[in-house]
Design a protein around this nucleic acid. Structure first.
Length: 594
RNA sequence: GUUUCUGUAGCUCAGCAGGAUAGAGCGUUCGCCUCCUAAGCGAAAGGCCGGCGGUUCGAAUCCGCCCAGGAACACCA
């Protein structure tokens, strides 16, 4: 369905044309003065100069042509040249009925679906997920869902950091500790053991230890480099060990992402792209793009229009090893081959902007992608503590995601219990309260993150995010639970919800809620077009406010007029469905009660 | 140093294809539970939209300069 604002724009354009004015710049938008009108059009003002006429006079002429409209009500020209208007109640009821009749509430699927690969993980093997991984997971998951809801084919890839020095470090440290393992015996030709010689917690301890040693001890560092090179060269024992490190890590990562309600279609990593490197490099060389510079193989990516210097992109180090950019380029080749996507979207820390600018340019120049393949970089800001500096534990270390989640669950549980006592109402059981705390806690965390613009840094504040007041996840969930509760009682009274039973009701509170519901399709479309989940958050917060106002002013279950009541219920049901769809697209869900 | 992002109420943030009186929430103050979850609703106070210029009938929004803070600037990922 078309958005109401667009439908009104069409009518206004017709009216401008009929009045003899150009209509190309005419646009109707939601009014920024709700006390005056519901929608407004400012199109008359810029015409004043060329038409040599007062804008108000133009507006008046245009308004003359709107009198027969079935959608527009109370159109009037106001100084200095605004055209104010309302939506006819009868039309709005009809529009909402149509919305409610479709399972997608008027939000059409793309006619020409795109294939989009979203790269939004980037966790490192053998390292626990920490808060630095939170944003890409949360934002990427939401973007994936928004794009899917819009009808596109979306492939989410975790893109593991499973290649490079880190693997060499782990192997080196393992060898130090258990030199007798068969993996290190070069003369060994048999099968390697099924059971890995370490657990996930071993790995999580081994890596930082090795990393520290390597920084302090040059000989150790050299050994790690050598191990990395041999692994990359395909040494059997190292490959076997690598597979086991991978397997142990991925199992753990999957568990962690699941707790976040984040899931990936692909569990590929940097290592999977390695086989595409030789061909990719050869292509760049053949096309004369790659050349030697200070011993390294580089591709120049500077462009004349650059306002700053963009250094050449290094494809191969002077020691012959590949690096970050190499792997990312090879991954692009792999993705083009496997999926031929129309777009690849990277949801990555914004500090990597420069790197991706280089990679994208090489990919375009070298023809690794089609000329019209969109390579997009969504750089997100850091999550800071209350002091405005990057979020740390009390001891100053990086906080593990699991720990953060647990803190939130605990805090949520405490609040739920507290509220139940305060209310003195039905006590839910221990288990249910714990379950609810998890659902609400996750919503608190995700909403707290997503309600900020992705590209900006934001302050993580546990107390604020888990609060039930204000612009928070819990507040949204509470609103949904309220709506669910009424619907349940309505049905318990033996009545059936008629989703399309909208009637024109002369009640400003009802109309306000209706207008807000009608914005749904536009909000989703905008959020997709602008890769902006925070717009969905802003919308549901507003919708929740309007709903709670309506709820407070209107007796629904006590309404005597059955038809009127059915209309209220239809509106409430539509509101609930919209809210539920929105939070699903944001990546969390609501409990039955709280 | 160069480039770039950010600067809006005490705090946390919206708004930025220019439009009418710059919006929320928290915090502060004051109302509202015989009634569908008060985890709610209503109201008040609180702002030279970092500063100075420019474009425009009109600027938080566009342009220039300045100030302050963050980030990135070839062989780490």
């Amino acid at each position: 369905m078309e958005r109401i604002a667009d439908l009104l724009t069409e009518e206004l354009k017709t009216a401008f044309t009929a009045a003899g004015y150009p209509a190309d710049k005419v646009r109707v938008s939601q009014s920024n003065r709700p006390d005056l009108c519901e929608y407004q059009c400012n199109g008359a003002m810029p015409l004043a100069k060329t038409a040599h006429k007062a804008p108000l006079a133009i507006a008046k002429e245009v308004v003359e042509h709107l009198s027969g409209s079935r959608r527009i009500d109370n159109a009037q020209a106001v100084a200095p040249g605004f055209i104010n208007m309302d939506v006819k109640e009868s039309y709005l009821a009809e529009y909402l009925g149509d919305m409610a009749a479709s399972s997608r509430m008027g939000c059409d699927e793309a006619e020409d679906p795109m294939t989009i690969v979203i790269d939004y993980g980037g966790p490192n093997v053998a390292k626990p997920l920490h808060v630095g991984h939170l944003r890409s997971a949360v934002i990427g998951e939401s973007l994936k869902r928004i794009a899917r809801y819009c009808g596109h084919k979306v492939i989410g890839d975790v893109h593991l950091g499973d290649w490079g020095l880190q693997m060499g470090l782990i192997i080196t440290e393992l060898q130090e500790r258990q030199p007798g393992l068969v993996y290190f015996d070069e003369s060994y030709t048999g099968d390697y053991p099924q059971e890995p010689p370490f657990t996930i917690s071993d790995l999580e301890e081994i890596y930082p230890t090795a990393s520290k040693k390597s920084k302090e001890d040059d000989a150790y560092h050299a050994k790690a480099l050598e191990a990395t090179a041999q692994l990359q060269a395909g040494r059997r024992g190292y490959r076997a060990l690598f597979q086991q490190i991978l397997q142990v890590s991925v199992t753990d990562l999957k568990r962690n992402y699941k707790a976040l309600n984040v899931d990936f279609d692909l569990w590929l990593g940097e290592s999977d792209a390695q086989k595409y490197i030789p061909g990719m490099v050869k292509k760049l060389e053949d096309e004369g793009l790659a050349h030697e510079s200070q011993g390294a193989l580089v591709v120049d990516v500077a462009e004349e229009s650059d306002s700053k210097e963009i250094p050449p992109c290094i494809i191969r180090k002077s020691d012959g090893a590949s690096l970050y950019a190499t792997t990312d380029l090879a991954t692009i080749v792999q993705r083009m081959q496997d999926f031929h996507p129309d777009e690849i979207l990277y949801v990555v820390d914004k500090r990597q902007q420069m790197h991706f600018t280089q990679v994208f340019r090489v990919a375009k120049k070298g023809g690794l992608v089609e000329p019209d393949t969109k390579l997009e970089f969504l750089g997100f800001g850091t999550m800071n503590g209350k002091d405005g500096k990057p979020f740390k534990t009390r001891e100053g270390g990086v906080m593990r995601l699991e720990v953060l989640l647990n803190d939130i669950y605990e805090e949520m549980y405490r609040k739920i219990r507290e509220n139940q006592e305060g209310r003195g109402s039905e006590e839910s059981g221990e288990d249910e309260a714990r379950e609810t705390a998890k659902v609400v806690g996750l919503a608190a965390l995700k909403y707290g993150d997503l309600s900020n613009q992705a590209s900006k840094n934001y302050v993580f504040d546990l107390d604020r995010f888990t609060s039930f007041e204000g612009n928070t996840g819990p507040y949204i969930l509470y609103t949904i639970v309220r709506a669910k509760s009424i619907l349940k009682r309505y049905e318990e009274a033996g009545k059936k919800v008629d989703q399309e039973a909208f009637l024109p009701v002369n009640d400003p509170n009802v109309k306000q809620l209706e207008l807000e519901c009608a914005r749904f399709n536009g909000v989703i479309a905008d959020a997709f077009a602008e890769t902006a989940p925070h717009k969905v958050c802003a919308y549901i917060y507003n919708l929740s406010n309007v709903f709670n106002h309506f709820y407070h002013e209107t007796r629904i279950l006590g309404e005597q007029d059955e038809k009127k009541q059915a209309s209220y219920i239809a509106l409430l049901d539509l509101t609930k469905r919209i809210l539920e769809t929105c939070i699903d697209v944001l990546g969390f869900s609501a409990p039955e009660r709280m």
